[in-house]
């Protein structure tokens, strides 16, 4: 089997990107409820694990995950996220693809790692919050002085980004296991995996 993506592969990439997008978009709506926003980095990889694991069984060629990542980032940009989502999402997708490829898209360890890295595009979508936050702090420092500002900053400190990135990883691991379990119990037995 050649390593070039043929028409059927490209169509499959399109289909699974559509599902991936639909699933995370609906799940992401939870982020509009004020407090739940922090759950998004955990939830998104969790639910997208199922379609992603099925996707990996359909094609075994390099480019499948990269293209998905490019398209997802592109569409997110077109809906109003900053270009940061592409700057983070696309490299993540490429690295994920390389890792997955090195395991022939079958090594379970590499699948988990690859999926987590791929899912980190979410950080690209959330980064603007932090950039905005810095500008905000500059401004209120001017208005309120250092003490007030420092207190506030400690509440929303930079390590929040690290926490969120970690939540993506946790969600990703869980999502991968859920995906694999669903694969075994349903898709393989139905003959479509």
């Amino acid at each position: 089997m050649s390593n070039k993506l043929n028409t059927k592969d490209l169509i499959n990439i399109g289909i699974f990107t559509a599902i991936y997008f639909a699933v995370f978009y609906v799940t992401g709506m939870i982020g509009y409820i004020p407090i739940c926003e922090v759950l998004v980095p955990l939830l998104l990889p969790l639910v997208t694990g199922i379609p992603f694991m099925l996707f990996l069984t359909k094609i075994d060629k390099f480019g499948m995950v990269t293209i998905m990542g490019i398209i997802v980032s592109l569409i997110l940009f077109a809906t109003g996220h900053s270009w940061l989502v592409m700057a983070v999402g696309i490299p993540c997708a490429v690295i994920a693809d390389l890792i997955l490829k090195s395991g022939e898209y079958k090594s379970w360890r590499k699948i988990i790692v690859g999926f987590c890295i791929f899912s980190e595009w979410i950080m690209g979508a959330m980064l603007p919050m932090w950039i905005m936050r810095d500008a905000y702090f500059d401004r209120i420092r001017a208005g309120y002085g250092d003490e007030y500002t420092d207190t506030l900053m400690s509440l929303m400190s930079g390590w929040m980004i690290a926490v969120m990135a970690l939540m993506v990883v946790v969600g990703g691991i869980a999502g991968a296991y859920i995906g694999r379990s669903t694969l075994k119990r349903h898709f393989e037995r139905a003959g479509i995996a």
Binding site: G14, I15, A18, I67
Partner: peptide
């Protein structure tokens, strides 16, 4: 490249189906 345009076309076509 076609590797990107075809999947994007398919994706849009699949949203209403989904």
């Amino acid at each position: 490249p076609r590797n990107i345009t075809i999947p994007i076309a398919v994706m849009f076509r699949f949203f209403p189906t989904i």
